[in-house]
């Protein structure tokens, strides 16, 4: 008989004595996980289709604008208008990603597993919200960066690059405001619904629900009503804020109500976050 050349050891169970990370790194890991999931990374091919379709459309729009600018030397669309032009696509993106982040966990019953771990309920909600807002911001910031680089190479003097950089940074700020406002509303709606398709529809609906109100107020023959009409819908609310803060000379439509738009936006976001936290306090005590 030949000697056995290898031995299989049953090493049995081994206790873990290595480092255990605290709450903050855990929340960080959950945030990164959510950001990846937003673009379908680490998920099935099916989960990648919608996010990347939207990314593709936004990228094409940015590429065309960049090419036209290089040709003509004229900026057809500024950074701020770029974001406003794409607001419908941002809504679609949120409607796809927010249910993927929270409705899915509700539907699968995974939440008790999260809450039985060191992170807290509000950590979960805020990590998910941060992931959605970051993903939406990246959706806009990526193409805007392409546009900026394209523009920076097509201008002829150094001073113009600095001007362009200023516009670009303001544009990024405006994109961030969009991402926060749209993300809060979308995640709040998605956190109430278990089914992803239903949640996606409800998110789009929640953005569009009050647009007729805006339309009606707009055609009223009172100047004040027209100027305040934008407050009635999240899309026009952010648009109004943008007219005041991010687009010099764009105040014509809202008159002197710019600060009111800013305050309303702030209140909207704060209320949304508080409602979201309240929602997860309730879901956990079930």
């Amino acid at each position: 008989m030949s000697q056995p050349t290898g031995v299989i050891h049953d090493i049995g169970y081994q206790r873990y004595t290595g480092p255990r990370l605290g709450r903050r790194p855990i929340v960080g890991a959950l945030y990164v996980h959510g950001l990846r999931a937003a673009f379908g990374l680490g998920r099935s091919a099916k989960a990648k289709v919608f996010p990347w379709l939207i990314v593709g459309v936004v990228a094409v729009v940015a590429a065309v604008l960049t090419a036209l600018r290089a040709r003509t030397g004229q900026a057809l669309v500024g950074y701020a208008e770029f974001t406003e032009m794409l607001s419908m696509l941002i809504i679609f993106f949120c409607a796809v990603v927010a249910p993927e982040l929270v409705s899915r966990d509700l539907h699968n019953g995974v939440l008790p597993l999260y809450f039985a771990r060191p992170l807290r309920r509000q950590d979960y909600a805020l990590a998910r919200l941060a992931a959605l807002v970051s993903a939406t911001f990246l959706l806009l910031a990526g193409p805007m960066t392409v546009m900026f680089v394209g523009a920076a190479f097509s201008v002829d003097r150094l001073g113009a690059v600095w001007d362009e950089l200023g516009d670009y940074l303001v544009g990024l700020g405006y994109a961030a405001v969009h991402a926060v406002v749209f993300g809060v509303l979308a995640l709040l709606v998605a956190s109430l619904l278990r089914r992803r398709a239903v949640a996606a529809g409800a998110i789009v609906g929640s953005f569009l629900l009050t647009t007729p109100v805006v339309g009606v107020l707009m055609v009223l023959p009172y100047e004040r009503a027209t100027q305040l009409a934008g407050l009635a819908s999240p899309v026009t609310l952010v648009g109004g804020l943008g007219d005041w803060a991010f687009e010099p000379g764009g105040e014509a439509e809202i008159g002197g109500y710019g600060p009111l738009y800013a305050l309303t936006t702030l209140g909207f976001v704060v209320a949304g976050v508080l409602l979201l936290l309240a929602r997860y306090r309730k879901v956990a005590s079930k």
């Binding site: 290595g18 899915r104 597993l113």
Partner: peptide
């Protein structure tokens, strides 16, 4: 503490390896 709930709590579209790895990270493992 490790907790195994009574009801269903698993995402059907992930592999067991991915899911358990994610849950390990949520428990604070590098």
């Amino acid at each position: 503490v490790g907790y195994m709930p009574e009801h269903d709590c698993l995402p059907p579209d992930l592999s067991a390896a991915e899911f358990v790895t994610h849950m390990a990270r949520m428990s604070g493992l590098p």
